[in-house]
Amino acid sequence: MGADQGRDGSRFSELTRRELEVLSLLATGDSNRRLAHRLGIAERTVKAHLTSLMRKLGVESRVEAALLAQRYQKALSDLRVIPQGPIGERAVSCKSDV
Rank of each mutant, 00 (worst) to 15 (best):
A3S: 09
A3C: 09
A3H: 12
R7Q: 10
R7K: 12
D8Q: 10
G9Q: 05
S10Y: 07
R11C: 15
S13P: 01
E14L: 15
L15W: 04
L15A: 08
L15E: 06
L15G: 04
T16S: 15
R17C: 11
R18G: 01
E19W: 03
L20A: 05
E21D: 06
L23T: 02
L23K: 02
S24R: 03
S24E: 03
S24H: 05
L26Q: 06
T28N: 12
T28D: 13
D30V: 11
R33N: 08
A36V: 02
A36H: 03
A36M: 07
R38D: 07
L39I: 02
G40M: 08
I41Y: 07
I41N: 03
A42E: 15
A42F: 08
R44F: 06
R44Y: 12
T45Q: 12
T45A: 14
V46W: 01
V46G: 02
K47N: 07
H49I: 02
L50V: 04
L50F: 01
L57P: 05
G58D: 14
V59R: 11
S61W: 12
S61K: 11
R62G: 06
A65F: 08
A65K: 09
L67G: 11
L68H: 04
R71I: 03
K74A: 00
S77I: 01
D78I: 00
L79M: 04
L79I: 01
R80A: 05
R80C: 05
V81T: 02
P83I: 03
P83T: 00
P83S: 04
G85R: 00
G85W: 04
P86D: 05
I87H: 13
I87N: 12
G88W: 04
E89N: 12
